[in-house]
Design a binder for these strands. Structure first.
Lengths: 345, 345
DNA sequence: ATGAAAGCGCTAACAG
DNA sequence: CTGTTAGCGCTTTCAT
């Protein structure tokens, strides 16, 4: 907790190097159009004084902040139950760092915070935003749209409003789900059940759609709603066992609910994978590797999703700056998933 | 990805309200010393124009940013394996939000990033920093000390340098470890083993010390080094079983390694808790509740740690601002832990 | 290629 | 109590 010392200004550097402020500014910003000897002198002065530009002063004139906001809505939900969030952030951080941008984190706890976030975004404190809106009825996307901040969404947002220009990055939830179910089918299973995720999130809906793509005329009783939690998985599994004692496979919407299902199956005396094969989704290591038996699941590259979101946003900002119509506005990306085979299926 | 519109300035609000910029500024910043009718007029103008202060301009003169940096060193390690990080952040975020401060997240990937972080911190972009330095030999604390930014550390930093004024928030790792071991002893166990964490982190060292506090003259073979991972836990457990087949309890430095140990015990045909009782540390829900049997462990209030760090820092900043000697500089805090009893011990 | 000068939007003395 | 004024540190025309 030490106090902070006064820092040297451009003026000071200029004086020391015997040039004008303008010249120092040029050098600091890349040094184009300044003759080598001067560049050298200025660099030296900067070094000696330990000069660091004052970002506030710079932003005031450039109207750029080299900062982007990461908005995470309602963390209580999924975000804090798994490393998802952290990995995503890591990817984002890496990309932003590579482009000298700062990451301003905005966590919201329920509706009360939306106004705050809206105000902040509208306040022009950041150049853009990366938004994770988990729930279908989330008003945040609208809010942000109105704030007029360039934005990339994490996960396909469910949006009743104008979709033009909405950019998002998502995993191929539907395709991944199809792969999971096909894998099960390939194992010779025919009574394949599905434990859904919380259906107010697009990822859960998409995974359910993927399941249906393969199980076109599945017994509707084979589908039970879960909520992405282990407890939900247990509940759903019990329900399934009661409804369809003859099931021979389960595709759970995520690893956490698969873990719950596994526990119930064991209690019920069903052997996995012999009697019932189980596939999860996410490949959340601490869970998938720890279950008994270890979990076959669908992996998504979370970190890459984060990186991509940042890349897309930054690219969009450059384009904005250049005011070019060419190079087209960035468009949404859906990342592939892969099946990771372990012991459960 | 929409473009951002030009925003109204203080000037514009002043014009609309028919007052001077200074008056508007006063109103915007609390409105002390401005007569009610004027306050009202200005508020209305602000509302109508949708005015939001330009933070850059404000910072330029006040030299405050109302932003603090959260520095997380080397995320690959522990941070991304569990919800620790996310919870900590949530606590920090809540506290900062309550005081209208922004959270700037700085993630570092190895040494190369240290210079960048040092530069940023020294650059006076934030009013203070919250730093998580996990490893004993981390040069980051030194760097930050030099940058002269008010800082609070998460977890006791191992610091060879000047300790004066170093403020940190930590869990009572040592006390928690003692509780864990005493609990085991209370169960009548006498051959209590310890799987340590990565001993380049103070938390691991402190937990080991706690174990030793109780097992004053323990068989040294009962202590095996782990690394906080499930794989490390497995390895350590195998080693322990080979060395001391007669052990009747294990205290693992965290839940993840306890999970690994549990698996090895099961493979070895040892019943838990009948043959061997097991206690973990952290109470990391997705793990502790999922193990077979569920894990008895030491809980730390992670979110509260985060909140407290932020509170301490902000308090220190206020004090700095007030330049008061009274109210003493904030000092470190060690939070209590609690034993959570489940099935494993 | 370099320098001089004019602000960016805001706060903080200082007058009145 | 309210308005006037002088910058905060930087970038950016515009001259030279």
């Amino acid at each position: 907790m030490t106090a902070t010392a006064p820092r040297p200004t451009l003026e000071a550097v200029a004086a020391r190097a015997g040039v004008s402020r303008a010249t120092v500014s040029r050098v600091v910003n890349g040094g184009d159009g300044v003759r080598e000897p001067l560049v050298e002198r200025v660099r030296k002065a900067v070094e000696e004084l330990g000069y660091v530009p004052n970002q506030a002063a710079r932003s005031l004139v450039t109207r750029r902040h080299d900062a982007i906001a990461v908005v995470v809505a309602e963390p209580e939900t999924r975000v804090f139950a798994d490393p998802f969030f952290a990995l995503q952030l890591r990817g984002i951080s890496k990309e932003l760092t590579a482009h000298d941008n700062q990451l301003v984190l905005l966590l919201t706890e329920g509706r009360d915070d939306h106004a705050r976030v809206g105000r902040y975004l509208a306040g022009g404190h950041v150049d853009g935003a990366l938004v994770f809106s988990l729930h279908l009825d989330d008003p945040l996307p609208e809010l942000i749209q109105r704030a007029g901040v360039p934005t990339v969404f994490g996960g396909r947002p469910d949006w009743s409003g104008d979709r033009r220009g909405v950019v998002y990055v998502d995993s191929d939830n539907r395709g991944g789900a199809r792969d999971a179910v096909r894998h099960l089918a390939g194992l010779g299973r025919t009574r394949i059940a599905h434990i859904t995720g919380a259906l107010d999130q697009t990822s859960a809906v998409d995974r359910l759609d993927g399941y249906r793509d393969v199980m076109v005329d599945a017994d509707p009783r084979l589908i039970v709603e879960g909520d992405f939690t282990p407890a939900g998985g247990e509940r759903a599994m019990r329900e399934l066992l009661a409804r369809c004692p003859d099931l021979d496979a389960v595709f759970a919407a995520n690893d956490l609910s698969a873990a719950g299902a596994l526990r119930v199956l064991r209690e019920a005396g069903r052997r996995v994978p012999d009697d019932v094969a189980v596939v999860g989704f996410d490949d959340m290591l601490p869970v998938a590797e720890q279950t008994e038996p270890s979990l076959t699941t669908i992996r998504q590259d979370i970190e890459e999703m984060g990186r991509l979101m940042a890349r897309l946003l930054l690219r969009g900002l450059e384009r904005d700056a250049a005011e070019l119509g060419i190079g087209a506005a960035p468009s949404s990306v859906v990342l592939p998933t892969t099946l990771v085979r372990r012991a459960s299926a």
